Simulated assay, not measured.
Amino acid sequence: MALVYEYMSEGALHEHLRGKEDSMRCLTWGQRLHIALESAQGLEYLHKGCNPPLIHRDVKTSNILLNANLEAKIADFGLLKAFDSGGDTHVSTARVVGTRGYLAPEYLATYQLTSKSDVFSFGVVLLEIVTGQSHLLNDPEQTSIIQWVQQRLARGNIESVVDARMSGDYDVNGVWKVADTALKCTAQSPEHRPNMTDVVAQLQECIDLEATRCDANARFYSAGSGGNPNRYSGYNTDISSEVSQSSIAFEMERLGRMPTMSNGPDVR
């Protein structure tokens, strides 16, 4: 028996986000948005388009593959779980499996999966897309990217978290919107997280914002004007998600490692 996949010549997303600068081109903000949208649509199909619904259980940047046109597809369904029926609210498992740093806190605590478990993992993916950072950072002690972003956005400065390799070539409103969506996806309580249909809608709005910016810049330069195309007003958002230090510590302990992590300021 063999399983044949479409050849995805550009490899995994994480290689583009954290590859060496001399060997891997930096993804533009527009490319990142389309990759995020296509990945979100894949998860939405698993949750809404399949009967019974499916939970991927291992959503991460290394399981998002890109073809020659940088079109994204979710891969690696080895940990996939199906609901027994469409009316089930969760799937129970005998043990916690997945990748440390992407696991939803309620799954770690109860061994019960829902579609919101995938939403949490995808929120981490979105933060990686915005920042270009790993899902776990040493800052200087090991910490989750969720906490790392929360600490910086609490100061109201989106530029402190955005991947510097993009050199400011993005719509700031769209970046704020993606970051806000990501933090809502990683809310401590699954009831406070959006579903993947909502995430798809938010990402489509961000793509529209970026397309408008690019069109405006094209008209601006075609008219022969000078100036700085990267001046934007901030996107006013209420970052409502929170990740407790205890839940991150519990995840590390459940998976066999218990680092010491610093506390950051409360998110506004």
Rank of each mutant, 00 (worst) to 15 (best):
Y111I: 00
Q112S: 14
Q112V: 00
L113T: 09
T114V: 13
S115G: 13
S117P: 03
S117Q: 05
D118R: 08
V119Q: 03
S121E: 10
S121T: 06
L126E: 11
I129Q: 06
I129M: 12
V130M: 04
Q133C: 15
L136R: 06
L137R: 11
D139H: 07
I146A: 06
I146L: 05
V149A: 13
R152K: 13
N157C: 14
N157I: 14
I158F: 07
I158E: 09
V161T: 04
V162M: 12
A164D: 12
D169I: 06
V172T: 15
V172W: 05
N173P: 00
N173F: 08
N173W: 02
A179K: 09
T181I: 05
L183G: 04
K184E: 12
C185F: 05
S189W: 03
P190C: 07
H192T: 03
R193K: 10
P194H: 08
N195M: 08
T197C: 11
V200R: 13
E205H: 12
C206F: 08
C206N: 01
D208I: 09
D208G: 07
L209P: 00
E210A: 06
C214E: 13
D215M: 08
N217L: 01
A218C: 02
A218D: 11
R219W: 00
F220Y: 11
